[in-house]
Amino acid sequence: MLSWIYLGIAVIFEITVAISAGNAQGFTKPGWTAATLISGAIATFFLSLALLEFDVGVGYSIWTSTAGVGIVILGAIFFNEKLNGKKLFGIALVIGGVIGLRMSGAA
């Protein structure tokens, strides 16, 4: 159970990496650059803790895919990015994949 908490924390910080990197403008903005690097380190740390119990492939796949979905959703909410039918279909496929990985019993 603790591995899922670690993975959730890693996902939150991975989403923070993406948002920070987008605002760092090629690492020309020091504050956003620092936020990108620090949140990346924290995300990787918690992922490594989660991978003590998850199979590496399963844990990493769940981490990247759920973070990706979170980034798409937050982009639509906060950055006026379009959320169309194709993106929603893609999100549904990712969620199905995560459920399939979870059902594999790898953690």
Rank of each mutant, 00 (worst) to 15 (best):
L51N: 07
A50M: 03
A76V: 02
F78Y: 14
V58W: 02
S65V: 15
L74C: 09
F78G: 11
F45I: 07
F45T: 05
L47K: 03
T64V: 15
G68W: 01
I73V: 13
V72Q: 09
V72L: 13
D55T: 14
G75H: 06
G57A: 13
V56Q: 09
A50E: 00
F45E: 00
S48P: 07
Y60G: 10
G68Y: 03
V72H: 05
E53S: 14
S65L: 15
A76E: 01
A67V: 06
F54R: 02
I73E: 00
I73Q: 00
G70E: 01
G59W: 02
L74P: 01
G57Y: 03
W63I: 05
G68M: 15
T66K: 05
L52W: 01
L52N: 12
A67H: 12
G59A: 09
L74S: 11
A50N: 07
V72R: 12
F54W: 08
L49H: 05
F45G: 04
L49G: 05
I71L: 12
D55Y: 10
L51H: 05
F54Q: 04
W63Q: 06
F45Q: 06
V56M: 12
I71S: 07
V58F: 03
E53A: 12
L47V: 03
I62M: 02
S65G: 15
A76N: 04
E53D: 11
F46E: 02
V69D: 00
V56Y: 10
Y60P: 11
F46Q: 04
F54N: 04
S65C: 13
L47D: 01
L74G: 02
G68K: 10
L74H: 04
V69W: 02
L74V: 10
V72G: 05
S65K: 09
V58I: 13
A50Q: 01
I73D: 00
G59H: 06
A76M: 09
V56T: 13
G59P: 07
Y60V: 15
T64P: 09
A67I: 03
L49E: 03
S61Q: 10
G75W: 08
L49K: 14
A76K: 08
I62V: 12
V56C: 06
V69E: 00
T66I: 14
A76H: 11
W63N: 07
L52I: 08
L51D: 02
T66Y: 02
W63L: 14
G70T: 04
F45A: 10
A76S: 13
W63Y: 12
L52R: 13
I77K: 08
L52P: 03
T64N: 11
G75M: 10
G70V: 03
G75N: 08
G70A: 11
S48D: 00
I62N: 00
V56E: 02
G75R: 11
G57H: 05
S65W: 04
G59E: 02
W63V: 01
A67C: 09
F78C: 11
I77M: 07
G68R: 07
F45V: 01
A76C: 06
T64M: 14
L47H: 05
E53H: 11
V72K: 13
L74F: 11
V56H: 08
L49P: 06
A67M: 10
V72D: 02
G59Q: 02
